[in-house]
Design a protein around this nucleic acid. Structure first.
Lengths: 188, 188
DNA sequence: CATAGCCTACCAAGTAGTAGGATGTCAAAT
DNA sequence: ATTTGACATCCTACTACTTGGTAGGCTATG
């Protein structure tokens, strides 16, 4: 199972940096040191590989999110930890895997779309929890529903990562991220 | 010049829907009804085509934005008109051209990146103007600087479009968009 | 003996891009 | 007014390369 994980790690990096249409089996083969044909033994089609990538990525994210939400951090700090995930993507010049695949949605095999949708839903559900937690403790000042704020946060972070990665303006990402928190926590 | 415009229109649609790495000269050729080789007469390389696309797209956007900011609409309504641009992209199943290219930034010829960066700067500058206008009229309640709010708006709309297009959840886009306006206009 | 994992060798289709020729248009020189 | 030449636009035909994927064989491990 070692090789399978190497392949997944390489493919994940390639998708996050170059997109699903921006790399080939040859790229992975060169990186992990086996032949192209051998890759097809582990993942018969590129769609199989894509599905596995979303699954692994979602699982790993879920476990990280559970760690954060189960911690003793304040709601604000939990949100900060979530933001930090995007920051480290940016530092590695990687887009979020979900966001990258989302941009290519119309070119993907349709079987990948439900998994992708589930990925975003998980993010929103987790954010909603944290927002409700912070709201009930009067740490956050929500106007609309928590789920709407969650959607806003997710969208803004995906967009900020998207743009900062392309422009190379890391400072813009930081400003956007802290504005997002400020907006939630300010007393009117 | 008719053919050149047809090519640009076709290519723009293809980039917005499928990404710069998601279409080929053959796709355009089939759509506009000339041969692949003839396309190279108008745009010798795909990078030339990409540069022209950003330029045309930016110019058209700038003229739309000038119309909005020069109108007698309230600042909130001007923002609403900006949001409407994203909404119509979503309805056409298109990503913003800039956002799409941003996701593929690491695979693009580096000569395209400065134009792309300029595109995002134009958006932020325009949004900053509108926010300052609304702030001085006490229509908006800004916490941080106008430019930070502008970045947040741009990021959130790009992200909302990205996600809604992939999940097919148009309602999520609307909720996000109206949350963004609410956050700006609420009195604490 | 079966199967997992890898290999060489191959395939059909698609990629951006080039060479060179046909046709037309338009402006300057005759 | 007509010829000439430059240039624009398109074409057929092609190249060199990459793409995802397959066929079938080798070897080691259970």
């Amino acid at each position: 199972m070692e090789m399978r994980d190497q392949i997944l790690a390489s493919a994940q990096r390639l998708v996050q940096q170059r997109g699903f249409n921006g790399f080939s089996y040859a790229d992975i083969a060169a990186e992990v040191g086996i032949r192209k044909a051998s890759l097809h033994h582990h993942f018969p089609t590129k769609t199989d590989l894509g599905l596995a990538l979303i699954e692994v990525y979602s699982e790993r994210l879920n476990s990280v999110l559970l760690n954060i939400s189960g911690s003793s951090l304040t709601a604000v700090a939990k949100l900060g930890a979530y933001v930090a995930l995007y920051r480290s993507s940016l530092e590695a010049e990687r887009m979020c895997l979900g966001g990258m695949l989302a941009s290519e949605a119309l070119t993907l095999d349709a079987t990948m779309l439900p998994s992708l949708k589930r990925f975003f839903n998980c993010n929103i559900e987790w954010l909603t929890e944290i927002l409700e937690e912070g709201n009930s403790q009067q740490i956050f000042v929500l106007n609309g529903s928590a789920v709407n704020h969650a959607r806003m946060l997710l969208s803004a972070l995906q967009g900020a990562l998207l743009i900062a990665r392309a422009t190379g303006d890391r400072e813009a990402f930081e400003q956007t991220a802290s504005s997002l928190i400020t907006v939630l926590t300010r007393k009117g």
